[in-house]
Amino acid sequence: MNAQWDAGIYARQSPYLERYVQIGVASGRVLSVSFPETPEEDAEDDHPLLDRIEAYLEGETDDFDDLDVAMTMATDHRKVLEAVRTIPYAESVTVRALAGMVPDFDPDSEDDGILIRTALDENPTPLVVPDHRVSDGPSAAPPPVEQRLRSLEGL
């Protein structure tokens, strides 16, 4: 869907987050989302996804569910993050509830709970894969960013 995107690193300062939003894209896919205090030296600031993220951070509802996200990780982690992508804007679930959304996972399994928490913590694309919507799980975003994203969505 986003094949027109030029590969590269893009970053834009967010007044709401009080830091930069930096994205990595290639072949029309989102590879990474991060929130550095200083962006990569060669990062450009003009990208349609940064426009959407900026609008989201200004209060526009967006699930980013139409984006093609590179899910190049272990299969179990990919299953978890794919389930996280289905959590609607302004809704949250617990790790246990998320386990019930992941094929072949058991909400009562301690091992599956650990696997879910690890997948959330290692999420390469927080915000686009909205790990901040898992109320009792870690987020790959820095804690101040996670709290602002949760606040923005009323969670």
Score class of each variant (00 low, 15 high):
residue 16 Y to W: 09
residue 24 G to M: 09
residue 77 H to Y: 14
residue 127 L to S: 04
residue 25 V to D: 14
residue 24 G to P: 10
residue 25 V to E: 04
residue 50 L to Y: 12
residue 93 V to F: 11
residue 15 P to Q: 12
residue 43 A to T: 07
residue 115 L to G: 14
residue 56 Y to N: 04
residue 70 A to K: 12
residue 21 V to Q: 01
residue 97 A to C: 10
residue 78 R to I: 15
residue 150 R to A: 03
residue 138 P to A: 04
residue 34 S to W: 06
residue 58 E to F: 03
residue 102 V to F: 13
residue 10 Y to N: 07
residue 143 P to C: 00
residue 89 Y to G: 05
residue 108 D to K: 08
residue 87 I to G: 05
residue 101 M to C: 09
residue 125 T to S: 11
residue 41 E to N: 07
residue 131 D to F: 03
residue 139 S to F: 13
residue 125 T to W: 09
residue 73 M to A: 08
residue 93 V to Q: 08
residue 120 L to C: 06
residue 61 T to Q: 09
residue 141 A to Q: 08
residue 65 D to M: 08
residue 152 L to W: 12
residue 152 L to S: 00
residue 83 A to I: 09
residue 59 G to D: 00
residue 41 E to R: 11
residue 57 L to A: 02
residue 135 S to W: 08
residue 13 Q to K: 13
residue 121 D to N: 08
residue 79 K to Q: 09
residue 148 R to T: 11
residue 134 V to F: 10
residue 78 R to G: 07
residue 20 Y to I: 12
residue 81 L to T: 12
residue 59 G to Y: 10
residue 107 P to W: 01
residue 68 D to P: 02
residue 88 P to V: 01
residue 24 G to A: 10
residue 135 S to P: 14
residue 123 N to G: 08
residue 138 P to N: 14
residue 31 L to G: 05
residue 153 E to I: 15
residue 109 S to D: 06
residue 136 D to Q: 07
residue 115 L to W: 15
residue 79 K to H: 05
residue 132 H to Q: 06
residue 111 D to H: 14
residue 27 S to P: 04
residue 18 E to G: 10
residue 7 A to H: 11
residue 7 A to G: 12
residue 76 D to Q: 05
residue 101 M to P: 15
residue 91 E to C: 10
residue 96 R to C: 12
residue 19 R to L: 02
residue 120 L to E: 15
residue 93 V to I: 13
residue 125 T to M: 13
residue 42 D to Y: 07
residue 55 A to F: 08
residue 63 D to H: 11
residue 65 D to Q: 04
residue 109 S to L: 06
residue 29 R to M: 09
residue 63 D to Q: 05
residue 39 P to H: 02
residue 116 I to V: 11
residue 74 A to M: 09
residue 124 P to K: 01
residue 13 Q to C: 11
residue 97 A to Y: 15
residue 104 D to G: 03
residue 57 L to V: 05
residue 82 E to N: 07
residue 22 Q to T: 14
residue 68 D to G: 06
residue 11 A to H: 11
residue 129 V to Q: 01
residue 30 V to A: 11
residue 137 G to K: 01
residue 104 D to S: 09
residue 98 L to A: 00
residue 143 P to W: 03
residue 155 L to E: 07
residue 77 H to I: 02
residue 30 V to I: 07
residue 65 D to I: 14
residue 135 S to F: 15
residue 112 D to K: 04
residue 37 E to Y: 10
residue 16 Y to T: 12
residue 50 L to G: 08
residue 83 A to F: 15
residue 89 Y to R: 03
residue 31 L to Y: 06
residue 4 Q to L: 10
residue 86 T to I: 00
residue 25 V to L: 00
residue 154 G to K: 00
residue 133 R to E: 08
residue 89 Y to D: 06
residue 77 H to L: 02
residue 70 A to I: 02
residue 145 V to H: 08
residue 90 A to M: 07
residue 45 D to T: 11
residue 117 R to V: 15
residue 118 T to R: 05
residue 65 D to L: 07
residue 152 L to F: 01
residue 122 E to T: 14
residue 149 L to R: 02
residue 67 L to W: 13
residue 124 P to E: 03
residue 153 E to A: 12
residue 111 D to V: 14
residue 81 L to S: 09
residue 129 V to P: 06
residue 138 P to Y: 14
residue 3 A to Y: 11
residue 59 G to N: 07
residue 128 V to R: 00
residue 84 V to Y: 10
residue 10 Y to P: 15
residue 33 V to P: 06
residue 129 V to A: 02
residue 25 V to C: 09
residue 8 G to V: 03
residue 30 V to N: 04
residue 40 E to K: 14
residue 119 A to V: 14
